[in-house]
Each structure stands twice: as structure tokens, then as C-alpha cells.
């Protein structure tokens, strides 16, 4: 469900950029989304298709860079990717870590003519 508000925001941000760059047609949009956001790509694509109709963004290709969750061990500062949350630090075995990436929710760039 949050895909809908995410897409609304993406369209709003890009539309406000178009005149600055003299763009009338958006061809592609690149997003960076961390796994912690639990965004469902198909739901996002579908929401985009619906909400971009009759705008300069209609038909644009939406690309998602999927960013894994990365932790930094509080004990030894080893950095590692978490495939699931059960893992402890591979270097020292501690389980207290700070999340250093995986929370991204960004528009990286877009392309248009």
C-alpha cells in the first residue's frame, strides 16, 4: 500500500524538475531502494502506471536499484551484509550492530527529452 504514496511523491518531485531542464517527456527514472523499506516492485510499477497516465512521465521506464541491508558490528566495526536478521557478526560473533545501509528511498536520476 505504501507504494502508492511513494509513487505520488516520485511523480511530484520529477514534475517540479521538468521545466527547469526543459524536459517534456520522461524516458526513465532510476530509484535506489533499501531492503528495509519492504517495497514490492510490482506494486510500485503498477502504481506508477496508474498515476503517471496523462503526465509527461507516462510510459517512462522505472528502474530500481535494490540495496541490501548492511550492518556494522558495535564490537569490532566489521561491516557485513545481512541476508536475514538472525546473523551475528562474522568476525567476532557479537550480535549488536548499527545499520549503515538498507534504508534508502531515493530518486537517483531521471532521463528525458
Amino acid at each position: 500500500m505504501h507504494e502508492l504514496s511513494i509513487v505520488q511523491n516520485i511523480i511530484g518531485i520529477i514534475q517540479s524538475e521538468l521545466s527547469k531542464h526543459n524536459i517534456t517527456r520522461v524516458k526513465s527514472i532510476s530509484l535506489r531502494i533499501g531492503r528495509m523499506r519492504q517495497v514490492v516492485p510490482d506494486a510500485l510499477f503498477f502504481a506508477f502506471e496508474c498515476l503517471s497516465k496523462d503526465t509527461p512521465l507516462e510510459g517512462a521506464e522505472v528502474k530500481i536499484e535494490d540495496i541490501p541491508i548492511k550492518g556494522r558490528c558495535r564490537n569490532c566495526h566489521h561491516e557485513f551484509i545481512l541476508e536475514n536478521w538472525q546473523e551475528n557478526c562474522a568476525s567476532c560473533g557479537e550480535n549488536q550492530m548499527d545499520i549503515i545501509s538498507g534504508k534508502e528511498l531515493e530518486i537517483a536520476e531521471f532521463e528525458g527529452t
Binding site: I6, N9, I10, G12, I13, E17, H21, I23, L31, L105, E106, I107, A108, E109, F110, E111, G112, T113
Partner: peptide
């Protein structure tokens, strides 16, 4: 033309 943004999608709410 490519436009590089690197913008938080939820910036308006922020």
C-alpha cells in the same frame, strides 16, 4: 538529457 537528483522520495513530508 540525464538529470541527477539524489533526493529523498519522502522529502516533502520530512
Amino acid at each position: 538529457m540525464k538529470v541527477s537528483l539524489v533526493t529523498n522520495i519522502l522529502q516533502a513530508n520530512e
